[in-house]
Amino acid sequence: MNYKPLDPSKIYLVTGVAGFIGYFLSKRLLEEGCQVIGVDNLNDYYDVELKHTRLEELYPFEKFSFIKGNIADKEMITQTFEEYKPDIVVNLAAQAGVRYSIENPDVYIQSNMIGFFNILEACRHYPVEHLIYASSSSVYGANKKVPFEETDFVDNPVSLYASTKKSNELIAHTYSHLYNIPTTGLRFFTVYGPMGRPDMAYFGFANKHFGGEPIKIFNNGDFDNDLYRDFTFIDDIIEGIVRLMGHPPIDSAVPHTVFNIGNNNPEKLMVFIETLERALSNATGENEIFEKVFEPMQPGDVPATYSSTDALNQAVGFKPQTPIEEGLQKFADWYVRYYGVKQKGKREWTESDSGQV
C-alpha cells in the first residue's frame, strides 16, 4: 500500500468541475486546503441549473478559481496551463452517455478525443506530477468473463462512447511512453449519489415518478436474466481518486496505468429500482411505487458490469463498499429536499429523461 495524504501546497486542475464527480472531487480538495483550478463549459446536455448549484457551493472557497471553457479549445487549455502551472491534473470533462453517443456522435469526438488530446499536449509542454483521467467501465464492452479486470481484453467496444474512452487509454499510454507523463486512467462503474447526473437511470426514475409518468426499463421484462450493474456511490469514487493522486505510476517502464473503481458487488437492476422506491418512500413518508414499462435493450447497452477492485486495493488500500441501501437513501433525501417534493402531492416536472443506466 502506498497512500499519501493530499498536499495542500500543490495546484490541482480539475476539468469538468461543474459535473457530478468533478464537483465532489473539487469540494474534497478545497475542504482539505488545496488550490483548485476548475474548468467547465457548462453545456446543456442536462439541467444547467444543477451545474450552477454545484459551482455555487465551490465559489466561497478562497482557493477556488473557475474558468468557463471547452477543453476542445486548445488555446484556452494552453493558456490555463501556462498561467497556473498545475502540479496534478484530473481530466473529468467529457461528453457522457452511451445512448446519446448514437444520436450525437460529433460532440463525443470533439470533447472526448480532441479535448483529451489537448490535455495531453498541455501536460507534455507544461510537465505535471500526475495526470488522472476518466475512462469508463464501458470499455469492457460485452465481456462475459466477470469480474472485469484491468488486464482483460477490451478491444470490442459496443458504443462510440466506449470507443472514445478506450482511445483515451491508448493515446495516454503513447504520451506516457514518449514524454514520460505519469498518467492514470480510471474505469468508473455506474456512479450514483446526491446531486448526480439527471441522465442516469436512478435520477431519471425519480423524475418520471414525481412527474406522474411511467419509468422505462430496458430489460425486456426478463427478471431471470435481468441487467446487472456495479453501482458505485460517489463518496467511494472520490476516495479512490484522492488516494491515487499521490500514487503516480513512476516505477514502470511506461508510467501509465488503469484502475477499476467499482463496488465489486453487482446488483440486479430490478433490485436497485425496488431499493430506490423504498428510499424515496422513506424520504417522503408516502408509498412511492413506480409505474413500469418494459422495453428491449437499447443499442450500446451491455447485460452486466462487474468490477474487480483488487488492483486498486493493492495500490492504495481501498475498495468501494457503500451498499445501495445507504447510497440511495442519501440520494433520495437530497432529491426530495432539493426539488421540494412534499409528503402529499407530487411536484410538477416537465424535463424529459433518457433513463440511461
Results as ranks from 00 to 15, higher is better:
42 L>K: 05
57 E>T: 11
47 D>C: 02
27 K>D: 09
24 F>V: 00
75 E>N: 13
14 V>S: 04
51 K>N: 03
24 F>N: 07
25 L>D: 00
34 C>T: 04
14 V>K: 01
22 G>I: 09
55 L>Y: 08
14 V>N: 02
29 L>F: 08
71 I>Y: 13
24 F>R: 09
70 N>Y: 03
34 C>V: 00
22 G>E: 06
61 F>V: 02
72 A>R: 13
35 Q>F: 02
43 N>Q: 04
74 K>V: 06
37 I>R: 11
29 L>K: 05
73 D>R: 06
17 V>D: 01
59 Y>S: 03
21 I>D: 04
52 H>D: 06
32 E>T: 03
44 D>Q: 10
43 N>M: 07
37 I>E: 03
33 G>T: 08
28 R>D: 07
18 A>Q: 08
16 G>N: 10
25 L>M: 00
43 N>T: 13
31 E>N: 15
68 K>Q: 15
65 S>V: 11
54 R>A: 15
35 Q>M: 05
49 E>C: 00
67 I>S: 10
45 Y>N: 07
72 A>L: 12
20 F>E: 08
49 E>H: 12
58 L>A: 03
40 D>M: 09
19 G>Y: 10
40 D>P: 11
58 L>T: 01
63 K>C: 04
54 R>I: 07
62 E>R: 14
47 D>F: 05
63 K>E: 06
49 E>F: 12
60 P>T: 04
39 V>R: 13
34 C>A: 10
28 R>N: 09
45 Y>F: 15
60 P>S: 09
52 H>T: 06
54 R>P: 12
58 L>H: 03
50 L>C: 09
49 E>T: 13
59 Y>C: 03
47 D>R: 09
45 Y>A: 11
65 S>M: 03
64 F>L: 06
27 K>Y: 08
70 N>C: 13
70 N>V: 07
36 V>W: 08
44 D>P: 07
40 D>W: 11
66 F>Y: 13
75 E>K: 14
51 K>D: 01
20 F>T: 05
27 K>M: 06
63 K>Y: 11
71 I>D: 12
44 D>F: 01
18 A>Y: 10
17 V>Q: 02
63 K>I: 01
71 I>W: 10
56 E>D: 14
48 V>Q: 14
34 C>F: 05
16 G>D: 07
40 D>S: 04
74 K>H: 15
50 L>T: 13
58 L>F: 10
